[in-house]
Design a protein around this nucleic acid. Sequence first.
RNA 1: GUCCCCAUCGUCUAGCCCGGUCCAGGACACCGGCCUUUCACGCCGGCGACAGGGGUUCAAAUCCCCUUGGGGACGCCA
Length: 459
Amino acid sequence: MTAIITRFAPSPTGHLHIGGARTALFNWLLARQRGGRFVLRIEDTDALRSTAEYTQAILSAMTWLQLDWDGEPVYQSRRADLHRQYIDKMVEKGQAYWCHCRPEDLEARRQKALAEGGKPKYDGLCREKGLGPAPGAVVRFKGPEEGETGWNDLIKGPVVFDNRELDDLILLKSDGMPTYNLAVVVDDVTMNITHIIRGDDHVNNTPRQIQLYHALGARLPFFAHVPMILGADKTRLSKRHGATSVMAYREMGYLPQALTNYLARLGWSYGDQEIFSLEEMRKLFNLDHVGRSAGVFNPEKLNWLNSHYIKETPLDELGALVWPYLAARGYERPADDLLAKIMATVRERGKTLPELAEKAGFYFQSPPELDPRAAAKVLTPENLELLREMRASLGQALTAEDFENLLRRLAEARGVKLGAIAQPLRVALTGQTASPGLFEILEILGPAQTQARLDAVLK
RNA sequence: GUCCCCAUCGUCUAGCCCGGUCCAGGACACCGGCCUUUCACGCCGGCGACAGGGGUUCAAAUCCCCUUGGGGACGCCA
């Protein structure tokens, strides 16, 4: 059995988006699982819209997601000569022909066909004219006029198109550049791609591409069309549904494992299992279990996965990940072990990295910003008096455990519940009524900081 | 308009290919309870779906047909 070769072929006309990331992931998974190759091809034949910046952004997004590719990325634009050779050969063999129809005329005829209830396809005007090259001319594929073209899609099953539905697609643009459909086929053939996993929106291109494979005498690859990802309103995921680029999710504080796990599970399943490391997916992934219907992107579930992976991240790593968000708030960097201890107290209280930074904010503000409603409710005259009385004894403990014993004894001595003295202290130290565990906070703040915060409230 | 694809809880899905084990299982979200110094986490419980209609069959979420609904494509974009 020969090794499989898959590819991801984004066009650098924008950032890597959620849908693209998923097709990349599936291609990567299949290749890695079967010991094959996963190659990256940048489809930059649209000179107007493709940029080097987007190319870079796509590469870094892939790297962030830990989807490594084999060899150097292939730039489609640099293969234009090769594409041109194939086109010339097809013209020579009578498989393609020069067409002199002008874009405006074409558009007019399309509109007319549409108005008459027909399909807006090329009418074949130049097909039998035997024209040659000319300024503004294009080369079209001479497709079969009858019969059917179909394939057995690895995800969708058998798909068949009537050849009469297909028109003579352009292979060479008037600017001398190959079109997408031609370039893709020539590249996939010459790069020996065995499995093409791509978005659903390409099924309509597939019969045309298959005809090109036939014309080229090339062996067909396997096709697998992954369903679209939709927004909450069930239309194609777009900007107005919120962030769509992978890097935007990185900035919003999502972990790459959460995103790949979510994306894999959106469409693919393995029984009831929800949590998969990249390593695990790689073992278990299977195109048979990729669903056929479109899926709605659900940020809530992504959040859940993100908090799961946040809880799994070692504290020192988590500290490093959250630090940039803390720094953005203008805080000073604490020692690594202290930052790790802080993370331990907040990591179950936030779903994204910036949320963690927000929950940890009070540690870094001295005194912390006092929530007026918390103050009004909890820092009553009686409670302030209570804090004043407790102030000295708080200097006698050092560890969270000691603080717990101390406060429990104090509560017992006064004949009140722990909460009665914990809440005023919490508000004094954090400015909030909701916070991480009070004993841990006391340990982290230390005696001096604790006294300073009490002083600020009691002055 | 034409063609292609799709259709199980609000959402992601298991089950469908090989009909009975499914008065349909899991997860997110939501609601309730427990735990508890607060908030979370965690645990327990609840709500909630086979789009509709015809067939085939002793039996259909599972097979077939139609309808409806949704998505996609119809570019000298990729």
